[in-house]
Design a protein around this nucleic acid. Structure first.
Lengths: 264, 264
DNA sequence: CGTAAGCTTGACAAAGTTCAACGATTGTGG
DNA sequence: CCACAATCGTTGAACTTTGTCAAGCTTACG
């Protein structure tokens, strides 16, 4: 019953700091009761409705704890699926590769997100997962999770929710890719990012993009030049301030209005 | 132990027939041991690795068996999520609706597919499910499935696989929507359809589309006119024969080559 | 049998891509 | 620690693809 000693710390208020002072004292917290002790509890990450015993059971599932440097892969498409990953800190992209070499970004994952869950019914991973900055992930072996989610209802629900979140997000991306114009896509992207950062305690209006224009474009189904042009346009119209990777949302309402563009 | 009396009949060789002679003797089979007795077992539908007892347990999960007429909804976005559906026969589309009225097709489902699984972690359904022809679906109440998948490993795996299939399909659609040109999208769509029909025992080269050009377009992120033009072009180049909704794939290899268009 | 809905095709407009040049930022090795 | 190379980002101009609008035709349905 260590759960009451749990430090779920107030999250870093300066978002940018994660770019400089990365990798907190991981090994330390590993020494004192499992790496998840200091994880931020989210709906998508550590289940919230767990008893102390259940929480211990959950953190006990963690098999591996891994640091990845910028550019390194956590797994590659075709790798044998061993388990899912909880992102502890950092920023990770997942990429699908077509036979002819074309790439499509399928998702961005940050602290509190569940990664690699799309492989859950398969033998191997369908995508690459690559760190966009030095990151920190925990693996839960699928076999153990499978077993435990049969024993503990809360874990089963947690797993189903994580899967559902993934489906709903992908579905939302289908809508974006299938029916939005470039400026709507970019606006939606920024609003989503803003919201997710806010959930994690960062500023909703000012942040640093960890991905290149090309990666944004690949995610949104447009070219990097188009991304750049939309940024410039949004800046010109006063909704946004952009300086390379530093973004400040000036008029969030107008940005929201951009998405549901009234066809004049 | 009734499982050996199971009639998993050879599937209808004439695909078109499902448009005329729909709805087999459902009520009869309901009377004699559950509607799933006559369901075609698929990786995505009835689990294949079940013992007789497990199979009975699975079919015992079916709460409701429902017929829907063309145009009727199985559920609407916002409806309370009660359970997932197994498509027994027919053809169903799922549609996401944006605030400003735009629609995006998120999927097509036919015999053997699992429907509504994207709601599994939520209170309500995120999409509409509407029948494109008279169809037949079975509902499995989520509460019961949740319980049973904790008791029976094979059911747990089945559920996970169904969820995974959904994610992987959506991911594939993201790739299509994010990186393919109109003719590649249409070709991919036809090839997928062909493959899925073949899996179900229908002709892979000749079939009837159950959806309109507009619905295809919505699914593929292009306008109906573009769908129509691509069909015409593929016909002109001899890869395809199209007559309104009747399609015959003439040169499947060339169609495959269309997808991975060598950028000359 | 007529009407509505769905499909095709053409001409034109708009959005996004491609290619290219240049400026800015980052990271590395001298 | 500076300088230079490599990568990344911006912008312009021409081009390609797809969307839009409109008309005419076919098919399905009441």
């Amino acid at each position: 019953m260590l759960a009451h000693t749990l430090t779920r710390p107030a999250v870093d208020p300066v978002f940018v700091r994660s770019l400089q002072a990365k990798i907190p004292e991981v090994t330390d917290s590993l020494g004192s009761g499992g790496p998840c002790r200091s994880c931020h509890p989210r709906t998508t990450c550590v289940p919230t409705g767990l008893s102390d015993a259940e929480f211990d059971q959950f953190t006990g599932l963690i098999t591996t704890h891994r640091r990845v440097k910028t550019g390194q892969a956590i797994y590659r498409a075709g790798d044998v699926f061993k388990g899912i990953y909880l992102v502890r800190s950092g920023f990770i992209k997942t990429v699908a590769l077509l036979e002819d070499g074309r790439e499509q970004m399928t998702g961005f994952y940050t602290g509190g997100d569940v990664l690699g869950i799309d492989a859950i019914g398969s033998v191997d991973h369908p995508t690459d997962a690559v760190a966009l900055e030095d990151s920190d992930v925990c693996m839960i072996a699928y076999e153990r999770l499978e077993q435990s989610s049969r024993d503990v209802l809360a874990l089963q629900r947690y797993l189903h929710r994580a899967l559902s979140v993934e489906i709903v997000r992908k579905q939302a991306m289908m809508v974006l890719l299938g029916s939005m114009r470039a400026d709507e896509r970019v606006a939606t992207f920024l609003l989503n990012l803003s919201e997710r950062l806010m959930e994690r305690g960062f500023s909703a209006s000012e942040f640093v993009l960890r991905m290149s224009r090309e990666e944004i474009g690949s995610f949104l189904g447009i070219k990097l030049e188009t991304v750049s042009r939309v940024f410039s346009k949004l800046q010109k119209t006063g909704l946004l301030e952009v300086e390379t990777r530093h973004v400040r949302i000036v008029d969030i309402e107008a940005l929201r209005a951009t998405v549901h563009h009234e066809v004049a």
